[in-house]
Design a protein around this nucleic acid. Structure first.
Length: 877
RNA sequence: GGGCGGGUAGCUCAGUUGGGAGAGCAUCGGCCUUACAAGCCGAGGGUCACAGGUUCAAGCCCUGUUCCGCCUACCA
């Protein structure tokens, strides 16, 4: 026996570093390209290469790691494909900020030099998040790590672009798009975040040319009037029948613009007059097309007013707004100003207010792709879990608009399209053409735009596996088994992977999509730098250890609800890790050699704990298979702490110390060894480090726990049988012990005082059970004597505890506080009578007796009998 | 405007086909009982948001109301 096998408290950091290095070095995360084993695969949601680990990553990757480690233990060939996303705008912004601090900018540097600079940045700082994922314990197959801009994935991107173009699903056009004047690029609709802001609705009068009144329009963005090319009214609006002129004067610029009729106009809004700015409003753009209106771009790509704005040229758009209002007011054309809440769009990368703007962009025709993505979920080829997200998914895809994929930035996949400077012919190809196919000219210029970052991430499930090559990896692991992701990128990423996967692989990219919640702070607020409520996962890891942190995330990851994180919670689960550690420490004091055999002669606690182990195995498996991470974690927590530690280890002590003979000791050692061993395997997916450490201290285990076999699948599991009868008997014994402890607590009797106890029962089985477990009860309840007898006279000066089918008397001699005891029993009696009243009311209800199912009625009858029995025993008092 | 989720103990939340209201933390009381004071033993605490309905039976199903949160949308 030795106590220095484990230190007294668990110290995570050294253990974590040591084992992670061991796992990687021994290639324990490596997937096999081909194998007879069942395949299980997950592709990581690639974090931005600029990213630093936040709570969302921590949750996301913990859940994935739990699934992957679980499937490995179950014997699957597991691929967890890792990698990072080049994050076009975000990364470009980071490097641009660096340049700015050096007093230069990308234009001064030039495109090629700039891109070189970004690659250099990526080499230096781009691996940060990968390192952080490793500290979380993520068991990705790092040898296969990919990057959305690496050679293979870039090839896949070009191939997809060319194919979509050939399929007629990519087009170029002059459309109104969302323009970020700061990032200087177009954005997809999705990339615009709307926020409700307090603003004003300004009513502006556009006079008729003859000065006889005018039409008043209402606007929230008066500066755009400089680009107005019409005023629209509803055709049925009688206020605007018989106008003095079909033209009005655009104030400030004194340009004549037509009055048009369009049913889009809402007669009840404002005065029923709408100013039409085709170049700066999506609706006006549509109206403009219907009426062949010119589009005047009054706001430039830099957010400053253009020459079209006349004397406002060069002004910032918001400065211009003030100037326009001031001038209108002076001219008496500003009729009214009323407060109004309205939505303002912002760039999701830099928060700058979006400017709807007219420009030539590339689009993907989304409808045909979306239809297949819809069908695949409708017919169940891909499951979305929890189901409530299905509706959101359907809704978006059913109303999908074409996807603007061109971006006017430099960092990204440059669009593989070349224009002939001589004849204007457009060539779309995988590789740069040497000459124009039409005129033979060699003056070909590549499109300067790059593709939306999400274009390449949409290919992730197959591009990372070597597509367009037909690799063995693809064959083995596509479609992937599960995708684990937050709902914030359901549209950005999940829906688009579905579209691309179905189009190019002719199969769904994943069987299951598990959508998890957001991690919030303890008040339920979204974590953000500006609020200062961000909890840094690495700080948490440093304070409490990775295992405690992971277990916390798993334990709070209930489906459909946000995870509220606070360090205090993690602290609670650190206690759990330490509890496990100490239980192992105790066990290892006795387990000096392997004990793989299970005796045929097992004590009641031995049978009971094996039965409970079987139950927790079943619970963990069924819950993990259903993505109920919190339930699986909860079942393990309860089993380890409140069954294994609180009861089993206490009951087994006399046996381990040889007080029940050598045979009993050997039997208990066998059970202890088995339960500890299998528990470690069950726990490993959640808390990989501490389990690996203990595993390696446990005699008779070989190599890494990662090579172990899940308990339900290994040969020894035959010994772990459900034993309901043992569970019931143990429950009775535990109830007796608790009953005695209860009295001890209520009466403030110190544990050092040994008690005399008599158990009375008319049930022969109960009497023999208590008699058989006398040693156990005596030990755990700290008794001097325990007498078992048939019901008889109540002993004098005793406190009473009533359990099912037995009464327990604790002799208290002179120290009993009669008032207190009477009060205590009175309270218990009242509780009991209330229960009986409830149950007998049911049994007197004819409808219940005739309509409720027989088993339910029986159960209630049985309960009533039990309660009555108990009640009878209260009588003598 | 449309949609979704939530309201259960002081706090954070479980509660899977309707039949015993639960856990963790916090609080209170007692313990250094030979793994663990990061511990052990015990106790108290709830009109399951509100109002109806279905049912023998509702935290759970239906209708309405209300409060909170989120997503989505082209009424200037």
């Amino acid at each position: 026996m030795s106590t220095d096998l484990l230190d007294k408290g668990y110290e995570p950091h050294e253990v974590e570093a040591r084992w992670y290095e061991f796992w990687e070095k021994n290639r324990l995360f490596a997937a096999k390209d081909q194998s007879a084993q069942q395949s299980y695969s997950i592709v990581i949601p690639p974090p931005n290469v600029t990213g630093v680990l936040h709570m969302g990553h921590a949750l996301n990757n913990t859940l994935q790691d739990i699934l992957c480690r679980y499937r490995r233990l179950k014997g699957d060939n597991v691929l967890w494909m890792p990698g990072t996303d080049h994050a076009g705008i975000a990364t470009q912004n980071v490097v641009e900020r660096q340049l700015a601090s050096e007093g230069t900018d990308r234009h001064e540097l030039g495109r090629d030099k700039f891109i070189e600079r970004v690659w250099a940045w990526r080499r230096e700082s781009g691996g940060k998040i990968i390192h952080q994922l490793k500290r979380m314990g993520a068991s990705c197959d790092w040898e296969r790590e990919r990057f959305t801009m690496d050679e293979g994935l870039s090839l896949a991107v070009r191939k997809v672009f060319v194919k979509l173009y050939e399929d007629g699903l990519i087009y170029r056009g002059n459309y109104i798009i969302n323009w970020c004047p700061r990032c200087h690029t177009a954005l997809a609709d999705l990339e615009v975040e709307h926020e409700e802001k307090d603003s004003f609705l300004w009513h502006v009068k556009y006079p008729f040319p003859d000065g006889s009144g005018g039409i008043t329009v209402a606007t929230t963005r008066p500066e755009t009037m400089l680009g107005d090319t019409a005023v629209a009214v509803h055709p049925d609006d009688e206020r605007y029948h018989n106008l003095p002129a079909e033209e009005v004067i655009l104030p400030l610029l004194n340009r004549k613009i037509p009055v048009i009729r369009d049913t889009y106009v809402d007669r009840s809004f404002g005065t029923g007059g709408l100013k039409v700015t085709p170049a700066h409003d999506p609706n006006d753009f549509e109206i403009g097309k219907r009426h062949n209106l010119p589009a005047v771009k009054a706001i430039g790509d830099d957010g400053k007013m253009t020459a079209e704005a006349g004397r406002y040229e060069g002004m910032d758009r918001f400065e211009c707004r003030k100037a326009v209002l001031r001038d209108l007011e002076e001219q008496g054309l500003l009729i009214k100003t009323e407060p109004l809440k309205h939505n303002v769009g912002h760039c999701y990368r830099c928060r700058t207010t979006i400017e709807p703007n007219l420009s030539i962009q590339g689009f993907v025709t989304a409808k045909p792709l979306a239809d297949r993505a819809l069908a695949a979920v409708r017919d169940g080829r891909t499951r979305i879990i929890p189901e409530m997200w299905k509706n959101t998914y359907y809704d978006w895809l059913e109303n999908i608009r074409d996807w603007c994929i061109s971006r006017q930035i430099w960092w990204g996949h440059q669009i593989p399209a070349w224009t002939c400077e001589d004849c204007g012919e457009l060539t779309v190809a995988m590789e740069a053409p040497t000459s124009c196919a039409k005129c033979g000219s060699t003056k070909l210029v590549q499109d300067t735009d790059v593709l939306d970052t999400w274009f390449s991430s949409a290919l992730w499930p197959f591009s990372t596996m070597g597509w367009p090559e037909h690799t063995p990896l693809l064959k083995t692991f596509y479609p992937t088994s599960a995708l684990v992701t937050g709902f914030d990128i359901l549209f950005f990423w999940v829906a688009r992977m579905m579209m691309m996967g179905l189009h190019f692989m002719d199969d769904v990219p994943f069987r299951d999509v598990y959508v998890h919640a957001l991690v919030r702070d303890e008040e339920g607020q979204k974590m953000s730098k500006s609020k200062g409520n961000v909890i840094d996962p690495l700080v948490v890891i440093n304070h409490y250890g990775t295992d405690a942190f992971r277990f916390t995330l798993a334990a709070f990851a209930a489906q459909g609800r946000d995870v509220k994180m606070s360090e205090k919670r993690v602290e609670g689960y650190r206690h759990f890790i330490n509890k496990l550690w100490n239980a192992a420490r105790f066990s290892l004091m006795h387990l000096d050699k392997p004990h793989p055999e299970i005796s045929r002669k097992l004590s009641l606690p031995d049978q009971w704990i094996l039965s409970r182990l079987r139950r927790v195995m079943q619970a963990v498996e069924s819950n993990l298979d259903a993505y109920h991470f919190n339930e699986a974690a909860g079942a393990l927590y309860h089993f380890i702490w409140h069954e294994f530690c609180d009861w089993y280890l206490e009951t087994v002590k006399p046996s381990l110390y040889g007080q029940a003979g050598e045979e009993a000791k050997q039997a208990s050692l066998g059970v202890l060894w088995r339960v500890l061993r299998e528990s470690l395997i069950l726990l490993h997916p959640f808390i990989p480090f501490v389990t690996e450490e203990i595993w390696n201290k446990l005699p008779g285990t070989e190599g890494s726990i990662m090579n172990a076999c899940y308990p339900s699948d290994n040969a020894a599991s035959a010994a772990i049988v459900l034993h309901p009868e043992a569970e019931a008997r143990m429950e009775t014994v535990m109830a007796a012990i608790t009953g005695i402890r209860n009295i001890r607590g209520e009466m403030n009797i110190p544990p050092s005082m040994m008690l005399d106890v008599r158990v009375q029962s008319s049930d022969e089985q109960i009497r023999s059970l208590i008699e058989a477990e006398k040693a156990l009860i005596t030990d755990l309840a700290r008794l001097k004597t325990l007498t078992v007898e048939k019901p008889g006279e109540k002993p004098k000066s005793a406190a009473t505890a009533i359990i099912d089918k037995a009464v327990i008397f604790v002799a208290l001699g002179g120290i009993i506080d009669f008032d207190k005891e009477a009060q205590r029993l009175e309270k218990e009696l009242a509780k009991l009578e209330k229960e009986i009243a409830g149950v007998s009311k049911k049994l007197h209800n004819e409808d219940f007796l005739s309509k409720a199912p027989a088993d339910v009625v029986d159960k209630v009858k049985e309960k009533h009998a039990g309660l009555s029995e108990k009640h009878k025993r209260f009588r003598p008092i």
